[in-house]
Structures are given as structure tokens and as C-alpha cells.
């Protein structure tokens, strides 16, 4: 009920701004105009193709980042000496925003999927790696002591203690990571791609189809929300021991 009310309020506000800005559909289209544009691009299938391309890029890049990030974090967290060598490099690369990699990505991989995968990978990798790594190294001494007392084998220690303990941290990383991945793919498509939702809104700017830009933006928001939701659902089912 509250959500519907918020929604109605938002649409009303939008309509007011539209009127205040002078009823100009080129500057800011009205809610009605936008709804019509949404129907058009949906039924023509135009936007669905772009959305699927963006989703594919985000999923591939995100899965690669998760795989590499988690393995990396486990190894560096477990072998602390090794970690001390690699961490400064990670710390140096981390502050560079994924978008800043786009020019070099285009030079190396060209315009298209590979560049997008690379940018998404970078965007998702650092939060996933950093959070998982932090989880691994924060294992309380009391747990490793119990493992010693019970003469736990290394693989069992990894499987039954270290990984489950780190799982909540890992999921914090995945949640931030999927958000970063989604932002990165849109940014990458704005500059370095010929398809995808980022490309779609950029193209419609050139064509002065402001209504379609808004449609694209709304869809970007919705899909980002659902990607996050998927991770949250996965988290709840994989971590039943947290309240």
C-alpha cells in the first residue's frame, strides 16, 4: 500500500516538473509520453535485445570476477606471507574506477563484448575480493585453535570452517559487486559498445528521443534492482545460521 502511494506521488511530482519545465517533451517527456515510448520499444523488441545484451555482459563479467576474486581471496588469506606480496598491488589498483579503464580496454579489446566483460570484471572483482579476503583473515583464533585440537585436516578446515565462516563476508562483496558490475556495464556501453542499454540511451540522446532515454534509465534501475535481489535470495538460502 505504502509502495503504491510512493509510486503515485512520484508520478505526480514528475508531471509537475514536466509542466514547470514548459511542457517540452524534448527536455523532459511527460509520464504519459514515456509510457507510450515504453510500450513501443517493448513491443518492437528493440529494448529487449539491448537489455539481454547488457545482462549477458554483466553476468559473464560478474561470474568471472566472483570466481577469480573468491579463489584469490582464499589463497591470499590462507597463505598470509604470499598475501603480503600481492596486497600492495591490489591496494594500488583498487582506487582506479572501472570507467577509467575503458580507454585502454577499447585499445586492447576493441569495441564490443570483450571490453565490456573486462570493465564489468574490474568493477565487480575488487569488492568481491576485498570483502572475502577480509572475511578469511578475520577468522577468530578460537576457531583455528579448535581445529588444531581436533587435529582437523587442511581440506576439512577449508571446507567446514574457513569457507562457511567467510560466507557472510563474501556475500557482502557479491552484493556490492553486482551493483558495481551493473554500473560498469552501462558506463562501458555508453562509451565503448554498439549495443546494450548504455548504448541505447546514448543513441537516443543523439536522436533526441528523450522519452526513450527515460525508458532506458528506468529499465536500468529495475534490472539493477532485480540482480541485487537474486543475490539476496541466494544469500538467505546459503546462510541459514544468521538471524
Amino acid at each position: 500500500m505504502k509502495k503504491i502511494l510512493t509510486f503515485i506521488l512520484l508520478i505526480t511530482l514528475w508531471q509537475i516538473i514536466f509542466v514547470v519545465l514548459g511542457n517540452d517533451n524534448y527536455i523532459l517527456p511527460s509520464p504519459k509520453e514515456t509510457f507510450i515510448a515504453f510500450k513501443d520499444v517493448l513491443f518492437s523488441g528493440e529494448i529487449i535485445d539491448h537489455a539481454l545484451v547488457s545482462l549477458k555482459r554483466v553476468v559473464v563479467g560478474f561470474l568471472m570476477a566472483s570466481f577469480v576474486g573468491i579463489i584469490f581471496a582464499l589463497i591470499l588469506g590462507y597463505f598470509k606471507k604470499f598475501g603480503e606480496f600481492i596486497l600492495p598491488v591490489v591496494e594500488m589498483l583498487r582506487p582506479i574506477p572501472p570507467i577509467a579503464w575503458i580507454p585502454i580496454a577499447i585499445l586492447i579489446f576493441g569495441l564490443g563484448d570483450t571490453s565490456a566483460y573486462f570493465i564489468v570484471f574490474l568493477g565487480a572483482f575488487f569488492p568481491i575480493f576485498t570483502n572475502t579476503f577480509f572475511g578469511v583473515i578475520s577468522l577468530p583464533k578460537i576457531y583455528s585453535n579448535i581445529a588444531l585440537t581436533f587435529e582437523t585436516k587442511k581440506m576439512i578446515f577449508l571446507k567446514k570452517i574457513l569457507i562457511p565462516f567467510s560466507l557472510p563476508y563474501l556475500f557482502i562483496g557479491l552484493k556490492i559487486g553486482i551493483g558495481m558490475a551493473w554500473m560498469s556495464v552501462i558506463a562501458a556501453e555508453l562509451i565503448g559498445a554498439q549495443s546494450g542499454l548504455g548504448y541505447f540511451i546514448q543513441l537516443n540522446r543523439l536522436l533526441l528521443h528523450t522519452d526513450k532515454i527515460i525508458v532506458g534509465m528506468i529499465l536500468i534501475g529495475l534490472l539493477g534492482y532485480f540482480l541485487n535481489k537474486i543475490i539476496s535470495v541466494l544469500e538467505k538460502s546459503l546462510i541459514p545460521w544468521k538471524k
Binding site: I142, Y143, N145, I146, T149, K160, I161, P164, F165, L167, I239, W241
Partner: peptide, 11 residues
């Protein structure tokens, strides 16, 4: 050893 703090595996 049985510790003073809670040392159960919470997962």
C-alpha cells in the same frame, strides 16, 4: 578444551 567464550561453529 572447552573455552570461556562461545566457541561453537555458528554455521
Amino acid at each position: 578444551i572447552i573455552n570461556q567464550e562461545n566457541d561453537l561453529f555458528e554455521w
